[in-house]
Design a protein around this nucleic acid. Structure first.
Length: 358
DNA sequence: ATTGGGAATCTGGTTACCTCA
DNA sequence: CCTGAGGTAACCAGATTCCCA
């Protein structure tokens, strides 16, 4: 069993997931998407890759996410990520003519028409993270968007309260630079961001601007949302990894317990039947070509009558060929001791490479 | 009044780019 | 012209703060 597990960013994919079907989803209750995607790369690698892929964009962006966020695609706590229909949510960086498209000409295509606040945050959009416009003090655009999105089912009183709050916040922001606004993104905005996160776990400036424009948010807000989203993803992944490690530990503990018990039985058997002393010492080795387990036996000094050499290593294919007595008992003992011996033997005979290697 | 979720902020690290000696 | 140092900007992860439902 390969226990190449990691918390958080896996340094490499868990190859055993491909090799050992016994560690499948049904056993563990979650799918082993661990470390099989971009999340398994180091940030430096990702950064390097991103920069290589950004050459086409010139100086417009510095980092590009080239891989979709696959890491959580298979996890139970994440909704099915690939079920969205591209036609239902359009991403500005995927449709070049977005700006010129007529709004919601195809029904649910835009999906966020409710967010369409007439030219609210254009100034902020133009300047991206400019200190003045994207500073924490600037609440105007985001609030207006929020107001526009949520006012559908509200009473006038609610709207008045909201307006009052916003004006209060705005005034606070104007007079106090340290005031920190809190904005709850609407469901539509969150859903849209989620969808785009499934496409790109990181944003380039173009995508950020487009998303911000689409959602009537400040680019800084989009950027922060993606940062927090990545953090949440990693946290969830860590939880899943911990759970998996816990299960592995339990499995290994149980296996250890079972083997200890078996060892005790064999020791008891050995004291009652001394011929077990004649069994050669056995070690398990790994076949380098196919990574299967092979057994190598080392006969010890002449206890079986004709073995005069002190240390003679042979493979199991020749084990005990001279010992014709106690064959039944020996077979029984070997069957208990080396449950894989017959398979390994057959495998070794099939593969000529093994003969050469041995 | 309490609490959890999440938006926002802070901090430290990395990299790319530019300028200049 | 080349090179290395220094400065700057942008981005990110991680930790933290703190607002609000």
């Amino acid at each position: 069993m390969e226990l190449a597990l990691s918390l958080g960013d896996a340094p490499k994919p868990f190859t055993f997931l491909d090799k050992t079907p016994k560690l499948s989803n049904k056993d563990l209750g979650f799918c082993m998407g661990l470390g099989t995607s971009s999340g398994s790369r180091s940030s430096d690698e990702k950064t390097r890759e991103n920069r290589e892929s950004e050459e086409d964009d010139g100086d417009e962006r510095r980092r590009v996410s080239s891989d979709p966020p696959l890491q959580l695609d298979l996890l139970p706590f994440t909704p099915v990520l690939r079920t969205h229909q591209p036609s239902q949510l359009r991403f500005p960086w995927l449709t070049d003519n977005l700006a010129s498209e007529p709004a919601s000409s195809d029904g649910p295509g835009r999906g966020l028409d409710v967010n369409r606040f007439p030219t609210v945050a254009t100034a902020a959009e133009e300047t991206d993270d400019g200190a003045a416009l994207s500073s924490p003090n600037s609440t105007v655009s985001s609030f207006q968007m929020d107001f526009c999105v949520r006012n559908g089912g509200r009473s006038k009183r609610d709207l008045d309260v909201e307006t009052e709050r916003a004006s209060s916040r705005a005034s606070d922001d104007e007079e106090n630079g340290s005031t920190r606004k809190k904005l709850r993104l609407s469901k539509e905005q969150s859903a849209f961001l989620e969808e785009s996160f499934k496409e790109h776990s990181t944003l380039n400036p173009k995508q950020k601007l487009a998303l911000a424009k689409q959602l009537n948010l400040r680019p800084r807000q989009v950027e922060v949302w993606f940062q927090n989203r990545r953090a949440r993803t990693k946290l969830k992944q860590t939880e899943v990894d911990c759970e998996y490690l816990k299960r592995c530990c339990e499995t290994l503990t149980e296996e250890n317990r079972r083997l200890q018990k078996e060892l005790q039985e064999l020791r008891a058997l050995k004291t009652s039947q001394p011929f077990y002393m004649q069994l050669p010492a056995t070690t398990l080795t790994m076949c380098p070509s196919c990574e299967r387990v092979a057994t190598t036996t080392t006969t010890t000094s002449g206890t079986n009558g004709n073995a005069n050499n002190n240390t003679t290593a042979t493979t199991t294919t020749t084990t005990n060929t001279n010992n014709t007595t106690n064959s039944a008992a020996m077979s029984l003992a070997k069957a208990r001791l080396y449950p894989f011996a017959s398979q390994v033997q057959a495998h070794m005979q099939q593969a000529p490479a093994h003969q050469a290697a041995s």
